[in-house]
Amino acid sequence: MAAPPAPLPSELDDGSDLRSLLERVEEGLTAFLARERGRQEAVTPHEADPARAVAELVRSGGKRIRPRFLLSGYLAAGGTPGERPVRAAMALELLHTAALLHDDVMDDAALRRSVRTAHTWHADLHRARGWRGEPRRYGESMAVLAGDLAWAYADHLIADLSPEVSREWFELKTELIAGQAMDVAASAAALADAELARRIAVLKSGRYTVHRPLVLGALLAGRADLASGFAGYGDALGEAFQLRDDLIDAFGDPEAAGKPTGADARAGRTTLLTALAVRREPRSPGWVSAARTAPPDRGRAGATAHAAVEARIAALLARARQCLADAPLSPEWRRRLAVTAAAAVYRDR
């Protein structure tokens, strides 16, 4: 199995300029969500249930990797600290929150960031109070509404920044939905296709996690000329980021990950890891949709696929670094983004 290059940073490379902006994003999210929750609670408690779910998921933590890349793109493009990039970074984190709330319903996930998911919490509340109807349906409905609300918050925060940012934002959202739809359909059809898995990874994670956030940051700084270099770096790194997620789900430590692992195999999800394992051992039960309750197969097929995915991650990281070398960036930002790339793909959660 391929080992990551050494030494690797244990944290993403945050200079004081980036740390300061990220702190403003956290403060802004806390204040905005408290204000929205209070405004809705003033009418009726149940009106505030979706706002409460959004605030609790944001407060539970997360890597904030999308805001980090947006702000990195902004600073690398010569932007100076201000309100516009902070609002855009807040919007991106809230869009990610919307996606997670919906993901957890689609995946029937019980935990997210080591706490109960919104739909399970609301289902338990329904049972405890003896309300009418199905607890599961109630919980899922409230989580979907919370996701919709987080999406509305995101659109509100990014509105009126600039026509160029609006167009990029639209592309980001449509690609995210397209990737999710492909993922759901491929899982239902039990398709173990490596090229399809790559396309899903690029759309579902690659562009939404790295490529589009970086370009949004560059556009906010008035540097549309950086879009091409950021696109190449972002697509390669974003795909590698998703592949690491796939490996963590299959072979990671649930405690470190903050959620149960093995969900991809149980759901018959189309990932490069599963596609390569099935190609190696077509009847390997841990990787096909018929074995949705089985843990991932960690035998020969799984080990071979694991090594192949690690090699793909290393190749994608090298490609991302080459795109940085070719981009019109300062040496300092080439270095910082290269360090960030390594930290983003060699992680355990």
Rank of each mutant, 00 (worst) to 15 (best):
A118P: 07
L125S: 10
A118L: 05
A146Y: 12
W121P: 00
A118K: 10
A123D: 00
W151H: 15
G139A: 09
H126I: 05
L111R: 04
D103H: 11
H102K: 05
A99Q: 11
Y138I: 01
A123K: 05
G133Q: 01
H122S: 01
D107Q: 02
G133K: 08
H96K: 14
A99N: 06
W151Q: 09
R129I: 04
D103K: 12
R132M: 10
W131Y: 07
E140K: 06
E140P: 00
V144C: 06
A99T: 10
L145H: 05
G133D: 04
A150E: 10
T97G: 13
R116K: 07
A110W: 01
R112N: 07
G147R: 12
D104N: 03
H102N: 03
H119P: 01
D124T: 02
V115M: 08
D148A: 12
Y153D: 13
R132W: 10
R113K: 08
A152V: 14
S141I: 07
R113A: 07
M142Q: 14
L100N: 04
A109Q: 02
V144F: 14
R127E: 15
A99H: 09
A146G: 15
L95P: 00
D108K: 08
L125C: 06
D104L: 06
A152C: 14
L100V: 08
L145R: 13
A110E: 09
